[in-house]
Amino acid sequence: MQITPEQYDAWTAQSRTGIEIVDGVVHPLPSPSKRHNRLARLLANAWDTAVGPGWNADTNVEVRLCDAPLTNLRPDVTVYRADTIDVTPTRPEHVLLVAEIVAPGTETTDRVVKADQYARAGIQFYWRVEQAATGAPLVYTYVLDPAAGRYRDGEVFTGVVKVTAPFPVEVDLGRL
Protein backbone atom coordinates (compact mmCIF):
# COMPACT_ATOMS: atom_id res chain seq x y z
CA MET A 1 0.00 0.00 0.00
CA GLN A 2 1.32 3.40 -0.98
CA ILE A 3 1.01 6.36 1.33
CA THR A 4 -0.07 9.72 -0.08
CA PRO A 5 1.35 13.11 0.90
CA GLU A 6 -1.98 13.96 2.56
CA GLN A 7 -1.89 10.80 4.68
CA TYR A 8 1.72 11.36 5.63
CA ASP A 9 1.17 15.03 6.49
CA ALA A 10 -1.55 13.98 8.95
CA TRP A 11 0.96 11.89 10.94
CA THR A 12 2.50 13.28 14.12
CA ALA A 13 6.11 14.45 14.04
CA GLN A 14 7.05 11.52 16.27
CA SER A 15 5.62 8.94 13.87
CA ARG A 16 7.68 10.46 11.03
CA THR A 17 11.03 9.94 12.76
CA GLY A 18 13.34 7.13 11.78
CA ILE A 19 11.77 6.55 8.35
CA GLU A 20 12.10 7.54 4.73
CA ILE A 21 9.43 7.17 2.09
CA VAL A 22 10.38 6.09 -1.42
CA ASP A 23 7.71 5.86 -4.10
CA GLY A 24 5.03 5.95 -1.41
CA VAL A 25 6.49 3.03 0.57
CA VAL A 26 7.74 3.50 4.14
CA HIS A 27 11.33 2.36 4.81
CA PRO A 28 12.69 2.29 8.37
CA LEU A 29 16.15 3.81 8.77
CA PRO A 30 18.83 1.78 10.54
CA SER A 31 20.16 3.21 13.79
CA PRO A 32 23.40 5.02 12.98
CA SER A 33 26.66 4.12 14.70
CA LYS A 34 28.59 6.58 16.86
CA ARG A 35 31.15 6.91 14.02
CA HIS A 36 28.34 7.72 11.58
CA ASN A 37 26.86 10.34 13.93
CA ARG A 38 30.26 11.93 14.54
CA LEU A 39 31.00 12.17 10.81
CA ALA A 40 27.62 13.82 10.23
CA ARG A 41 28.20 16.27 13.06
CA LEU A 42 31.72 17.15 11.86
CA LEU A 43 30.36 17.89 8.38
CA ALA A 44 27.32 19.82 9.64
CA ASN A 45 29.39 21.96 12.01
CA ALA A 46 32.00 22.79 9.36
CA TRP A 47 29.39 23.54 6.73
CA ASP A 48 27.27 25.64 9.09
CA THR A 49 30.29 27.83 9.88
CA ALA A 50 31.31 28.09 6.21
CA VAL A 51 27.99 28.77 4.47
CA GLY A 52 27.25 32.19 5.92
CA PRO A 53 23.99 33.70 7.13
CA GLY A 54 21.83 32.75 4.12
CA TRP A 55 22.14 29.01 4.69
CA ASN A 56 21.87 26.42 7.46
CA ALA A 57 23.57 23.04 7.71
CA ASP A 58 21.81 20.40 9.79
CA THR A 59 21.50 16.66 10.23
CA ASN A 60 18.29 14.69 9.84
CA VAL A 61 16.39 17.21 7.70
CA GLU A 62 13.43 15.67 5.92
CA VAL A 63 13.46 16.61 2.22
CA ARG A 64 10.39 15.95 0.08
CA LEU A 65 11.71 15.15 -3.37
CA CYS A 66 8.42 14.19 -4.98
CA ASP A 67 4.68 14.23 -4.21
CA ALA A 68 3.48 11.58 -6.64
CA PRO A 69 4.54 9.04 -5.68
CA LEU A 70 5.59 10.44 -2.31
CA THR A 71 9.36 10.43 -1.78
CA ASN A 72 10.76 11.90 1.47
CA LEU A 73 14.41 11.33 2.25
CA ARG A 74 16.53 12.28 5.27
CA PRO A 75 20.06 13.04 4.09
CA ASP A 76 22.67 12.63 6.81
CA VAL A 77 23.60 16.32 6.35
CA THR A 78 21.69 18.99 4.44
CA VAL A 79 22.54 22.59 3.55
CA TYR A 80 19.29 24.49 3.03
CA ARG A 81 18.17 28.12 2.72
CA ALA A 82 18.01 29.73 6.17
CA ASP A 83 14.76 31.54 5.33
CA THR A 84 13.04 28.14 4.96
CA ILE A 85 13.81 26.91 8.48
CA ASP A 86 10.10 26.92 9.36
CA VAL A 87 8.86 25.70 5.96
CA THR A 88 7.67 22.10 6.03
CA PRO A 89 8.37 20.04 4.08
CA THR A 90 11.81 21.11 2.91
CA ARG A 91 11.81 20.99 -0.89
CA PRO A 92 14.70 20.42 -3.30
CA GLU A 93 14.67 24.08 -4.34
CA HIS A 94 15.50 24.97 -0.70
CA VAL A 95 18.56 22.68 -0.72
CA LEU A 96 22.07 23.39 -1.97
CA LEU A 97 24.01 20.32 -0.82
CA VAL A 98 23.31 16.93 0.75
CA ALA A 99 25.64 14.28 2.12
CA GLU A 100 25.05 10.61 2.76
CA ILE A 101 27.35 8.58 4.99
CA VAL A 102 27.43 5.04 3.69
CA ALA A 103 26.81 2.41 6.34
CA PRO A 104 26.51 -1.38 6.22
CA GLY A 105 23.18 -2.12 4.57
CA THR A 106 22.90 1.26 2.78
CA GLU A 107 25.67 0.85 0.21
CA THR A 108 23.57 0.56 -2.96
CA THR A 109 20.98 3.03 -1.72
CA ASP A 110 23.54 5.74 -0.92
CA ARG A 111 25.87 5.08 -3.88
CA VAL A 112 23.26 4.69 -6.62
CA VAL A 113 19.62 5.18 -5.68
CA LYS A 114 19.82 8.34 -3.57
CA ALA A 115 22.37 9.96 -5.88
CA ASP A 116 19.93 9.45 -8.75
CA GLN A 117 16.96 10.75 -6.73
CA TYR A 118 18.78 13.87 -5.54
CA ALA A 119 20.01 14.60 -9.07
CA ARG A 120 16.54 14.18 -10.61
CA ALA A 121 15.18 16.54 -7.92
CA GLY A 122 17.76 19.17 -8.97
CA ILE A 123 19.91 19.32 -5.82
CA GLN A 124 23.11 20.91 -7.07
CA PHE A 125 25.74 19.18 -4.91
CA TYR A 126 26.01 15.68 -3.43
CA TRP A 127 28.72 14.26 -1.19
CA ARG A 128 29.07 10.57 -0.39
CA VAL A 129 31.17 9.60 2.60
CA GLU A 130 32.54 6.07 2.65
CA GLN A 131 33.53 4.93 6.13
CA ALA A 132 36.83 3.12 6.43
CA ALA A 133 37.26 0.22 8.83
CA THR A 134 40.26 2.09 10.18
CA GLY A 135 41.58 5.56 9.46
CA ALA A 136 39.93 8.49 7.74
CA PRO A 137 36.88 8.10 5.50
CA LEU A 138 36.81 8.71 1.76
CA VAL A 139 34.67 11.61 0.53
CA TYR A 140 33.32 11.66 -3.02
CA THR A 141 31.99 15.00 -4.23
CA TYR A 142 29.53 15.40 -7.09
CA VAL A 143 28.14 18.37 -9.02
CA LEU A 144 24.81 18.28 -10.84
CA ASP A 145 24.87 18.38 -14.63
CA PRO A 146 21.41 19.91 -15.18
CA ALA A 147 21.31 19.03 -18.89
CA ALA A 148 21.95 15.35 -18.18
CA GLY A 149 19.94 15.28 -14.95
CA ARG A 150 22.71 13.44 -13.11
CA TYR A 151 25.85 14.12 -11.14
CA ARG A 152 29.32 14.53 -12.59
CA ASP A 153 32.21 13.19 -10.56
CA GLY A 154 34.01 15.82 -8.54
CA GLU A 155 37.04 15.46 -6.34
CA VAL A 156 37.74 12.55 -3.99
CA PHE A 157 39.29 13.22 -0.59
CA THR A 158 40.61 11.23 2.31
CA GLY A 159 41.10 12.79 5.72
CA VAL A 160 40.98 16.53 5.04
CA VAL A 161 38.38 17.80 2.58
CA LYS A 162 39.15 21.24 1.13
CA VAL A 163 36.81 22.67 -1.51
CA THR A 164 35.82 26.07 -2.90
CA ALA A 165 32.37 25.10 -4.22
CA PRO A 166 29.59 25.37 -3.34
CA PHE A 167 31.35 27.40 -0.62
CA PRO A 168 34.91 27.43 0.68
CA VAL A 169 35.28 24.90 3.48
CA GLU A 170 37.91 22.68 5.02
CA VAL A 171 36.84 19.66 7.06
CA ASP A 172 39.20 17.29 8.84
CA LEU A 173 37.24 14.05 8.90
CA GLY A 174 40.27 12.29 10.33
CA ARG A 175 39.29 13.78 13.72
CA LEU A 176 37.07 10.86 14.53
Rank of each mutant, 00 (worst) to 15 (best):
H36K: 07
V61M: 02
R74S: 10
L65A: 01
N37C: 09
S33F: 08
R41P: 00
R35K: 03
G52Q: 08
A40K: 02
P32R: 00
G54Q: 15
D48M: 06
E62S: 14
A50K: 13
P32N: 00
N37S: 10
T49D: 14
G52K: 12
P53M: 14
N60P: 11
V51E: 00
H36C: 09
N45L: 12
D67Q: 12
P30F: 01
R64K: 12
L39Y: 14
N72M: 01
D58Q: 06
G54Y: 00
W47R: 12
L39E: 11
P53G: 15
A50C: 10
S31G: 14
L42A: 05
A50M: 10
N72G: 03
T49F: 08
A50F: 11
G52W: 05
A68M: 04
V51K: 15
N37I: 05
L43H: 11
L73V: 09
A57I: 08
R41M: 13
H36F: 07
T71Q: 04
N37P: 09
L43K: 13
R41S: 02
R41W: 15
N45K: 04
P30M: 00
T59V: 10
T59H: 03
P30C: 01
L39I: 12
P75R: 14
E62T: 05
N60S: 14
R38I: 09
A50E: 01
D48S: 09
E62W: 04
C66N: 10
L73R: 05
N60T: 01
D67A: 11
L42S: 02
R38V: 12
S33N: 08
P53Y: 07
N37Q: 14
R64V: 07
E62G: 12
S31R: 14
P69D: 04
L42N: 09
W55E: 01
C66Y: 04
R41H: 11
L42T: 04
L65E: 01
N56E: 14
P32S: 00
T71D: 02
L65Q: 02
R64P: 15
R38N: 02
R64W: 05
A46N: 07
W47I: 05
K34Q: 08
N72D: 11
G54N: 13
E62V: 07
D67E: 08
R74D: 06
V51L: 13
V63D: 04
G54W: 00
R74C: 13
A68S: 14
R35D: 11
V51A: 12
N72R: 03
L39T: 02
R35C: 02
K34M: 08
E62K: 09
T59E: 15
P32C: 01
K34A: 11
R64L: 05
V63S: 05
L42K: 13
D48Q: 09
P30Y: 01
D48R: 08
G52M: 11
H36Y: 04
R41E: 13
